[in-house]
Amino acid sequence: MRVIIVEDSVLLAEGLTLLLTTEGHEVVATVGTAEEFHEAVDEHRPDIAVVDIRLPPTFRDEGVRAAVEVRRVHPGQPILVLSQYVEQTYATELLAGGGGGIGYLLKDRVARVSEFVDALERVAKGGTAMDPEVIAQLLVRRHAHPIDSLTPREREVLSLMAEGHSNTDIAASLVVTERAVHKHVGNIFAKLGLPPSDSGHRRVLAVLAYLSGV
């Protein structure tokens, strides 16, 4: 894959480059500001952009704003946003534009290289990668909520679904058959009163919208 890195910290940019090239991907550009990010996307049309949330000049949430803006100009441009902390509000903003190919992960996740690369590839293919922390923030809510009626296993499946994993991935990480996952998913949608939906980005959106919209 052809990747651009938007990260103002040289240390982290180098680390990411090392990681990605080691995994066989090509880093076509490394830039440090939102403006250069726009230019780099225009120039290289990368398969995916990995973007730090804090960028000069204010070091606040430029990364989120830039990601939303770039995707407005180039709909569907896959972007993976990395941050030292996650907020559900940012996740909502990133997803608001619609369309797949969006990821939002804690920087910590980079340490689990294979999982990180999986997420990266998923997003590049138009899928979704939401950090488990975001999902955890969404799941703490609400007394007397239909979510309470889910079994612990179903909650696990729901979380993984919301993070953007496919049924195959979920089956693998829970060590169950894909058919079992399929059954859980059916139960979850029935219990929450959601229209059944295939795997992929639309499903993630439905679940996340349901969780944050109550």
Partner: peptide
């Protein structure tokens, strides 16, 4: 304002 909205979003009580 943004921080308060984030707090509200993660509160178990609506």
């Amino acid at each position: 304002p943004g921080a308060v909205a984030a707090l509200a979003a993660r509160s178990p009580v609506p």
